[in-house]
Amino acid sequence: MHELSIAYNLVEIAVETAEQNHLQKVDVLHVKIGVLSGVVKEALEFSFDIAAQGTPIEGAKLVVHEVPLKIFCPNCQKMHVLKKPIPLVCPECRQRTGEIVEGKEIELYSLEGGDVLEPSD
């Protein structure tokens, strides 16, 4: 399970970015995971909570957006989204293609958060 190692990288980038953008508190992390990235969504979600413990983003929610496989067919000269990651064949003309446009990413897409409201007395 390499998701834990990925989760630590994720937390590190999120903490750095939050600091640079003066986000005092991070509520949500949006992550894009390609179907051919080799990352299992549930394993990443599980690992994230462990990796975030004791960091400034502890308690933030991880939202995983799965990215389907998009290929370019050299025959039709068009891009197609595949329903399943394999086989890598054009759904229209059945041409095999290794040209993957999307679907392999492991990407931290955005953070949601803001400044903490000072308690008023």
Binding site: I6, L10, S110, G113, V116
Partner: peptide, 22 residues
């Protein structure tokens, strides 16, 4: 105790999580 947030913001990052390794 959860802290309330004023003016929620979204920060776009679009960064490869394994950038360091790559």
């Amino acid at each position: 105790m959860s802290q309330a947030i004023k003016q929620p913001r979204i920060v776009k990052i679009r960064e490869n999580v394994l950038k360091k390794n790559d």
